[in-house]
């Protein structure tokens, strides 16, 4: 496929993606496409399948059926070197940071460069320090262990690791969970500026509506394994969808019934 043809296709497209774990249906036919340079946030309650959706795109979880394409190429079932090449398109910021305890901060950031792309350690360290600076961390943290960092600093290191290899697509999994409101806003600013400056395609999953509004230009809501609303971020307050209304205002009353046993 020519580069020109590729640019006309959505960067990521999911069609009819289904996944169940035992009797529990997690994804029940997801249809979603994300354009180049777009920043999409997927919102939805806990257990609605947000994380499973991005894990399916990454190939960490194999969908039971459906199609996932990136740049127009089917990616389900990729193996070996093709899969490695595919994964080099991605960076990911995990909910808990998922930093490697056994490695210093700089090696965490440079891990994908050293192991995944064979960059020399000296050069990878310089790149890691440059990326740490982009997320507001000085070179003095480079030799620290992840355990010596605060939660906010760990998220920043996770963000530096996600952008270290200049990916085309970045996933953010609950980027502000567990942070105080000020640090959450700093992380939101960092994500928004990173996505804008690098021109990458981004998918984020979050419960935090302030974060969703700040880092996205499009929002999709997942409920019971299906996308029930998908639209521009500016339209979220006028969605006309009672599920979305209930979720964004955080109301206990509404069509979404939580399974609470009394």
């Amino acid at each position: 496929m020519s580069e020109e043809a590729k640019t006309k296709l959505p960067k990521i497209a999911l069609k009819g993606v289904k996944k169940r774990f035992g009797p529990k249906v997690v994804l029940d036919g997801i249809d979603l496409s994300v354009g180049r340079g777009e920043s999409l946030v997927i919102i939805g309650g806990s257990g609605s399948g947000k994380s499973v959706t991005i894990k399916c795109v990454l190939g960490i979880v194999r969908p039971d059926s459906g199609s996932i394409t990136v740049d127009g190429e089917e990616v389900s079932g990729l193996r070996g070197s093709k899969r490695d090449a595919y994964l080099r398109k991605f960076g990911m910021l995990f909910q808990g940071g998922a930093l490697f305890d056994s490695l210093p901060v700089w090696e965490n950031v440079a891990f994908g460069l050293i192991q995944g792309r064979g960059v020399a350690r000296k050069q990878a360290r310089d790149i890691a320090i440059e990326k740490l600076a982009k997320v507001g961390l000085g070179s003095e943290v480079a030799n620290l262990s992840p355990a010596e960092l605060s939660g906010g600093m760990q998220k920043r290191v996770g963000l530096a690791r996600a952008i270290a290899a200049d990916p085309e697509i970045i996933f953010f999994d609950e980027p502000t969970t567990g942070l105080d409101p000020i640090m959450a806003d700093i992380i939101n600013d960092l994500i928004a500026s990173t996505v804008h400056n690098l021109g990458v395609t981004a998918i984020s999953i979050t419960h935090d509506m302030a974060s969703a509004r700040k880092i996205s230009n499009r929002i999709a809501m997942l409920y019971h394994g299906k996308i029930i609303w998908d639209g521009a971020t500016k339209d979220i307050d006028n969605s006309g969808n009672p599920y979305v209304e209930q979720f964004i205002h955080g109301r206990a009353q509404g069509p979404i019934k939580m399974e609470v046993r009394r």
């Binding site: 990911m92 930093l99 891990f111």
Partner: peptide, 22 residues
């Protein structure tokens, strides 16, 4: 096991590193 439950093994995959090999 700790790496599994803290998603460090998933992180290895996203960094183009086969977790079994590594």
């Amino acid at each position: 096991g700790t790496m599994r439950v803290t998603e460090q093994i998933d992180a290895l995959t996203t960094l183009s590193t086969n977790p079994v090999k590594y």
